[in-house]
Nucleic acid binder design. Sequence first.
DNA 1: ATTGTCGTTTCACTCCATGGATTATTTATC
DNA 2: GATAAATAATCCATGGAGTGAAACGACAAT
Lengths: 246, 246
Amino acid sequence: MESGSIRVLSRAFSILNCLARERAPLGVSEIASAVDLPKATVYRLLDSLEGERAVLGKGGRYEIGPLSLLLADAYRSQVGFADAARSALTTLRNETKETVHLFVYERGELYYLDKLESPFQVRMHSRVGGRASLFRLSAGKALLASLSPEELKELPETLPDEVAAEFPEIRARGYALDDELNEAGLRCVGAAILDEKGRPRGAVSVSAPVYRFPPEKVEVYGLLVMKAARSIREGVASLETGSHAG
Amino acid sequence: MESGSIRVLSRAFSILNCLARERAPLGVSEIASAVDLPKATVYRLLDSLEGERAVLGKGGRYEIGPLSLLLADAYRSQVGFADAARSALTTLRNETKETVHLFVYERGELYYLDKLESPFQVRMHSRVGGRASLFRLSAGKALLASLSPEELKELPETLPDEVAAEFPEIRARGYALDDELNEAGLRCVGAAILDEKGRPRGAVSVSAPVYRFPPEKVEVYGLLVMKAARSIREGVASLETGSHAG
DNA sequence: ATTGTCGTTTCACTCCATGGATTATTTATC
DNA sequence: GATAAATAATCCATGGAGTGAAACGACAAT
């Protein structure tokens, strides 16, 4: 249990997280057993959440409600580069014809902010809004390589040595490479999005199955990813530490 | 006060709504006065919300957190046509070079689901996730025109006669027109997105200032909007009443 | 008809959120 | 750099608000 956590709230959010995971309308009993709470309690919480439009009740079945859109839109505008990144991502996807990801870095953690799928149908089970690994993804490693030593020490998890060993190479190239580290048969390159002070705010990456992503393409895609990262930074009026929305 | 509403929850969500409105980091005191609650209470709620990643605390200032992304992504996938619509929206925007909106219809209410801005810089103060008027927007009227008489009676608000009077025309054309009704100097056309049973699930619209949207273009844009609505429907594997995500 | 399941409602109990007061910390002013 | 003002963070006695077992009603399957 966290330090200051109001029980009703953590319960309510565990229901929301449950609904977000399932992505399908669930009944009260299903939810109750999933979050391990009495039916009556879950029912009351759902009722209350529905009043806030955080969930949507459809004849006894519940799902995530439209309030989420409002909040996510606000979050995106706070991040600052989310909107500006859309066109850069589109370009990158069109240039590579592969799946591209946008990440945002918040308080030592990396989150999927957006993605554009490859036109080829290949499963990539990344989920927008989910937490991403700083150590296993190319985007994460590219981001870490641009942190100061002090910032590296403040990370929630300790930095593995083998990741730190890659930093000189990443800094020299400008992008990070991930060779089937995260997932077998998948290769990706990622670059950090830096603000005006050189601090990382997020990252971009291109991922593809190795059979479409041979070693000789690494350099090509690497440069494209860097170009995208740069254009995202430049496309934003201000990427100051306290970026406000217009 | 709603029927079954847990006080802590409605307070927590009023804080989230407040942060979403402001779109800038706020201090505890600012929030407390905005939502009219004691500072200590707001502080505790923020602390708890931060633990859930629903808000993000940055040195005494708080903003919406990344959990919103996860929830919104789930909501989009539940809606079913949100992802499929992206490419149809892009096409529509490129064809018209004007701002296009995507709406979702839920329980008698219309919500902004997505938008693509015109390359021309004209302010259109729509906010993704916000509620949209069923009676004043072309998209709303197009949607209403495709509802059955029984469904029309179940609407949260009573249908104005002048709106109902437009239905025959809208049904004949296949799209609805809004002549500066919603906002002076703004014209838009909208079409409903129907599922396999002919029930409306959402709508698409094109909006432009009248000086770029003369009467002779209404028919052209109207047909394009209809084409987009149709392609969104067809782009979705299943738009059944209980649409699940893959 | 019967049984089982699930959503909904009830209500007495008690636990937990409450908020005024206090302290710590940061920011502004001279 | 000392003082003051504002704000964030902490504490704790209190009672009202959330709790959940149980009962009810609706529906489906057998």
